[in-house]
Amino acid sequence: MSFVQLLIDATALGALLALVAMGIALVFGVMRLVNFAYGELITVGAYTLVLTKGWPIVLRVLAAFVVVIASSLLMEVIFRPLRRATAATMLVATFALSFLLQNMFLFIFGPQGETIEFLAPLNRAIEIGDLRIRWITIIAIALGAVLLGFMSWLLGKTSVGLQMRAAAADFTTARILGVRAGRVIMLAFVLSGFLAAAVTLVLAVQRPLATPNYGFVVLVPALVGVVVGGLGKLVPATLGGFAIGFATVVLGDLLPSGSRVFLNSVLFAIVIIVLLVRPDGLFTGRTGVAERV
């Protein structure tokens, strides 16, 4: 594989995981909750596409967004009793929800997987010189750039964005100033659901078989990226997600083929080292505030 080709593929996975990481970090910011069940939102999206097979594309996309965002809001309601819980309780509760949902999908759809059949032609490649780039790779990168741009505009330039940043940085002070806590938390879940739906659409093209752990396998590396990047802050967390995706592809290429099965070991060993050297995150800078948990 040529070097440029490698960079493009790595960027595509990085962009995708950056979106997932941002979805996790948005909710963490306002609730201090690491949502292990976030991956199940992606799975919900995938099964929505399965169930809408045969519909016009626009309607399928719309259905995915509506169902995923609604599910995200439902999660917000489920997690309400956790708002004052300890970190341990929160972690286990979201893990329990993830477990429950995966088994619900297993119960309804079975283990063998359902074909999604969504925009499969986008997997075709265009050739530029000796590069072979699939359309969906380009779309993934473009979508990642657009959505990250949109989010940074929303958070940086609008009043609701300012409120969300304030709530994430100092929740109590934000409330004293008049930020409506419930509304900001709901907005965080809506936005993170929106990102999950967008990720689903790209994934559905790349991995056309919906299984009960469809989203979970994406969540795990993204979550690791979030922690490695720096959980408390949005930009570092998103960069962390990107870095994990990028590193996965590059390492997968660098490792000799015989030891490629140990990719996960190498990746997670790096994670441990980063956590030990920079417990507050790789991209948090010098002023990183120590984690409260």
Binding site: S159, L162, Q163, R165, A166, A169, D170, T172, T173, A174, I176, L177, V179, T287
Partner: peptide
């Protein structure tokens, strides 16, 4: 309890 990482302007807007 000002927001040290925000601009003065953003603090006021809050």
């Amino acid at each position: 309890h000002i927001y040290p990482d925000f601009t003065v302007e953003d603090n006021l807007r809050l």
